[in-house]
C-alpha cells in the first residue's frame, strides 16, 4: 500500500522514477535490517537444531560423542527400525494417544460449559469466575504438582477423604497403574480448562445477538438455542481450539513428569517424556532424536489434517 501511495505521490513530483525506486530500496533494506536479529536467533536456536535433530536420528550419538559431535557414527535407519520393536516406545505412543483422546474433549467441553454459563445470565461475580477459572493456567506446573500430589496422596489426601466421607474406599491414585493416568488427565483438564474458556468467551462475543432474538421469536428453547445458534456460531473457534489443544496434548511432558515421572510401570509416560528419558537420562541422543522426529511427524500430520478441515468448513 505504502509503495503505491509513494508512487502516486511521486507522479506529481518531477523526479518520479528515482523516488519510487529509492523508497523501494530503502524499505527493502529496512525490512531485512529489522528482521535480522530474529532471523539470526531463529537460525541458530531453531532451524539448525531442527535439521541437526533429523541428522542425529540416523546416528548412534551418545554421551561419548558430546566431545566430538562430528565423529558420531552413521547407522542409517537403525534407530527407526529399533523403535518398531521397542515396547516402551509402543507404551508411550499409546499413552500419548490416550492423553489426546481423553484430554482434548474433556478440556474443550469443560471450557465451553463454563464459557456458556458465564456468557449467559451471569453478571454478578463475572470477573471473580473468570479470574478464578483462569488461575491454574498462569500457575507453574511444579507448584500445582506439589498441591495435587498431596490432594491425591493415599492417607491424608483430600480426594480420599471425600471418597471415605461417602463410604467408598480410598485409592492409591498415583501408585495404581490403572488410576494414575485418569488422575493425571483430571489434573491437566483442571489446569487447562480456563484457557479454552477464554477462547470460547471471545468466540461467543462474535455471535450476533440478533440471531438469539430471531431464535426466540421462533419459539426456540434454551437447548435449541444452544444447539442451533451457539454451536454453529462457535464453529471457527471450536476448530481453532481443537487444533491447538490437540497439538498441546500430543506434546504433553510436564504434567506426568512432575506427578509420576512416567510411572507406575510406564503407564503415564508420554512420547515427550520418553524423548527426555532416552536423551538426558540414558544419553542415547541419536535414538531420542528419532523418537522426536516421529512425534514431529505425528504433530505435523494432525495439524495439516485439522487445518484442512478448518479451511473447508469456514
Amino acid at each position: 500500500m505504502s509503495a503505491t501511495d509513494a508512487a502516486a505521490n511521486a507522479a506529481r513530483v518531477p523526479v518520479a522514477g528515482r523516488t519510487s525506486s529509492g523508497v523501494r530500496l530503502r524499505q527493502s533494506l529496512a525490512g531485512w535490517f529489522f528482521s535480522l536479529p530474529f532471523v539470526l536467533i531463529f537460525a541458530v536456536f531453531l532451524a539448525i537444531p531442527l535439521i541437526t535433530s533429523f541428522l542425529l536420528s540416523f546416528t548412534s550419538f551418545g554421551l561419548r560423542d558430546l566431545r566430538n559431535p562430528v565423529g558420531a557414527s552413521f547407522i542409517g535407519l537403525e534407530n527407526y527400525a529399533e523403535l518398531l520393536g521397542d515396547p516402551t516406545f509402543h507404551t508411550a505412543l499409546i499413552n500419548t494417544a490416550v492423553y489426546v483422546v481423553a484430554g482434548v474433549p474433556l478440556t474443550l467441553i469443560a471450557g465451553l460449559a463454563v464459557a456458556v454459563a458465564l456468557n449467559g445470565a451471569v453478571r454478578r461475580f463475572r470477573t471473580l469466575f473468570r479470574v478464578g477459572y483462569y488461575l491454574p493456567v498462569v500457575t507453574s506446573i511444579v507448584a500445582i504438582a506439589v498441591v495435587w500430589r498431596f490432594v491425591l496422596s493415599p492417607d491424608q489426601g483430600l480426594a480420599n477423604l471425600l471418597l471415605r466421607a461417602v463410604g467408598l474406599p480410598g485409592q492409591n491414585w498415583l501408585g495404581n497403574p490403572a488410576l494414575a493416568m485418569p488422575a493425571i488427565i483430571a489434573m491437566i483438564v483442571w489446569k487447562n480448562l480456563g484457557f479454552s474458556m477464554v477462547i470460547f468467551l471471545a468466540g461467543l462475543q462474535t455471535i450476533p445477538t440478533s440471531l438469539y432474538e430471531a431464535a426466540r421469536i421462533d419459539g426456540a428453547g434454551k437447548w435449541q438455542e444452544f444447539r442451533y445458534v451457539t454451536l454453529p456460531g462457535l464453529r471457527p473457534t471450536m476448530l481453532f481450539s481443537v487444533v491447538t489443544t490437540t497439538i498441546g496434548y500430543l506434546q504433553i511432558f510436564e504434567e506426568p513428569f512432575v506427578m509420576t515421572g512416567g510411572g507406575p510401570l510406564d503407564r503415564t509416560m508420554s512420547l515427550s517424556m520418553y524423548i527426555y528419558e532416552e536423551g538426558f537420562s540414558f544419553f542415547h541422543q541419536g535414538y531420542a532424536a528419532a523418537i522426536a522426529y516421529v512425534l514431529f511427524a505425528i504433530v505435523a500430520v494432525v495439524a495439516v489434517v485439522q487445518f484442512r478441515i478448518l479451511r473447508s468448513e469456514t
Binding site: I48, L50, S53
Partner: peptide, 12 residues
C-alpha cells in the same frame, strides 16, 4: 514441538 529441537540445542 520443543522436544524436537531440544537434543541438538543441548549439544550446541
Amino acid at each position: 514441538p520443543g522436544s524436537v529441537t531440544v537434543i541438538p540445542l543441548y549439544i550446541l
